[in-house]
Structure formats: structure tokens, C-alpha cells
């Protein structure tokens, strides 16, 4: 049943959830008998009160804002992969392996949209508020003054050329990783939303690695991890990688640390730590696609 699945889900994110509801676990222990005694229709109300008991509040304003920003990014990514899947020209240029990768990523991004919409409920920002009545400009030419799609941005052939499509995908995934990472501190202490965000964050990183593997397969010199700053060879996305070449982490100079032989190399230092981006910077970077 949905409700019990949900409790199980929360319990995964927050192992102490059951204790939190009731230190002696009575509430959960009695769930089954409770369910049999009370009308099914009353269960959501019961569950809402459990959540209130457990966390003392509903989602805070900050949490709603953070998750809505994540939702906007997921809307963009989902729409992007949906458009790629719908483009005969892009599909014609992809190998079977590439199609397999992109189909999986597309499914995940659409699932992330559904998940965040579900968590946010009525607080979820509508997709139609994005771009021009919900339509994006994947060429990166969105007019942010008039809020219109021009399709005349730097990635003009993104939906007709599979090579361009993969490059933009790479930038989206790497930027998505940075965005979730940058948002995490605003969810500090909010166990369920933070864990959910982290569980999406790492999937975006899996995607980024996978798309980079595809680019490598096309003969581009690129690794699954980010070396230095912008290592994609696409100068238009320099801003998306700005700061990735940091070698000092939390006050520790990584290149001064002992490596296998000598100190940790600059490449290894930059590759081993992905850098966050704050939401304002991310918003500025994705505005050209219509995220607003």
C-alpha cells in the first residue's frame, strides 16, 4: 500500500524515523491494527499527523524554495532529453550504446520531476511558468527580457546534431551536480529533503560521468571526472565550470598533501573534488535555456 511504502521510504532516508514518531514505536507497531479499524480514507490524515509529530513542521519556506529550484532544473533536463528522443536527426546520429545511455538518463530526469512534484505537492512550481509558456530554447538563445524562444543561441544545431546534443547534455549534467551540491547547505538538518537531494545529486554525477564516457567514445579527450576547470572544449560553457579547478578544499591545499609518489598532482586535486555553485550563479547560467 502507498502509505506503508512511503513510511518505508522515509525510514530509508531517516533510519530514526520510527523512533522519532514514537520512541517506543507504538505508533508503527499499531499501524496494522489501526488500518483495519479506521476507514482507509482517514489514513492520509493519520499520516500527515505522524509527519507533524515526527518533524514538528511541514516543509519550511527555504526548503520549498530550494526544492522548487531543483524542480526547475529537472524540468529543463527532462524536457531536453525528451526533445532529443523526439528528434529524428539526433536519434539518427546516435549509436545503439548512446541511445541506451540517453534513454536511461531521460527516464531518471522525468522520474526526478515526478518525485519533486510529489514532495512539493501544491507548492510545486508549474512547468508552464518556465521558458515561453513551458517551451525551452535548447540552443541557449532564450530572450530573458521578452521571455521568448529565439532558437538562435550558441548551440544552434543542438536538436539536429547528436554531437552538439551530447555536449549540451554534458554541461547540463555537470552543472546539475554543482547546483545540487550548492543547495545542500540550505537543507542542513532537514533530514528527509536533504537525503532526497543527495540521492538525486549522486545520480546526476553518475549521468555526468556516463555522458563524458560517451564523448570520450567519440574521440574527444575527456575523462568521466572534471580535470581542471572547463575540460569539455566548449568555450560557451566556461562559466558552468568556473572554479572547478580549485585545489584548496576547506583550507587544506590538496596539492600539498602526500600522493602515491610525491604530492597529489594538480589534475588529481581538481578531479577528486567537484565544486558547488550557488543558486544565483546557476540561475544565471541556465536562463539562456529558459529556466526562470
Amino acid at each position: 500500500m502507498e502509505l506503508l511504502n512511503l513510511i518505508e521510504k522515509i525510514d530509508q532516508a531517516d533510519p530514526e524515523f520510527k523512533d522519532r514518531i514514537s520512541p517506543r514505536r507504538d505508533a508503527i507497531k499499531n499501524m496494522t491494527s489501526f488500518g483495519s479499524k479506521v476507514a482507509i480514507a482517514a489514513l492520509p490524515v493519520f499520516f500527515a499527523s505522524l509527519l507533524k509529530k515526527a518533524y514538528g513542521q511541514t516543509l519550511s519556506t527555504t526548503t520549498v524554495a530550494t526544492l522548487n529550484f531543483a524542480l526547475k532544473l529537472e524540468y529543463l533536463e527532462a524536457a531536453f532529453y525528451n526533445a532529443g528522443a523526439a528528434s529524428t536527426a539526433v536519434q539518427a546520429g546516435l549509436s545503439a550504446t548512446e541511445k541506451n545511455y540517453l534513454t536511461q538518463i531521460q527516464a531518471h530526469e522525468n522520474a526526478h520531476v515526478k518525485f519533486l512534484q510529489g514532495v512539493l505537492g501544491t507548492s510545486a512550481v508549474a512547468q508552464t511558468t518556465q521558458g515561453q509558456n513551458g517551451a525551452y530554447d535548447f540552443t541557449g538563445g532564450f530572450n530573458t527580457t521578452t521571455n521568448t524562444v529565439t532558437n538562435a543561441g550558441p548551440f544552434a544545431d543542438v536538436l539536429t546534431n547528436s554531437a552538439t546534443f551530447l555536449k549540451v547534455a554534458c554541461a547540463f549534467e555537470d552543472t546539475g551536480v554543482r547546483a545540487y551540491k550548492g543547495a545542500a547547505p540550505s537543507l542542513l538538518g532537514q533530514q528527509v529533503p536533504l537525503t532526497a537531494a543527495l540521492n538525486i545529486h549522486s545520480v546526476e554525477a553518475r549521468h555526468a560521468s556516463a555522458v563524458r564516457q560517451l564523448l570520450f567514445g567519440r574521440g574527444i579527450t575527456i575523462k568521466p571526472w572534471i580535470t581542471g576547470a572547463n575540460d569539455t572544449g566548449i568555450t560557451q560553457v566556461n562559466g558552468n565550470y568556473a572554479g572547478e579547478d580549485a585545489t584548496v578544499q576547506g583550507g587544506v591545499t590538496i596539492t600539498s598533501l602526500p600522493g602515491v609518489s610525491g604530492s597529489v598532482s594538480t589534475n588529481a586535486a581538481t578531479e577528486s573534488f567537484d565544486q558547488p555553485l550557488d543558486s544565483t550563479t546557476v540561475a544565471g547560467l541556465v536562463a539562456i535555456f529558459g529556466v526562470r
Partner: peptide, 10 residues
Amino acid sequence: GEIVSVEARH
């Protein structure tokens, strides 16, 4: 977060 995404890339 900076480390876990690298683990995910791996």
C-alpha cells in the same frame, strides 16, 4: 558533497 559526486562518477 564535493567528494560523493566524484565517487558517483567512479
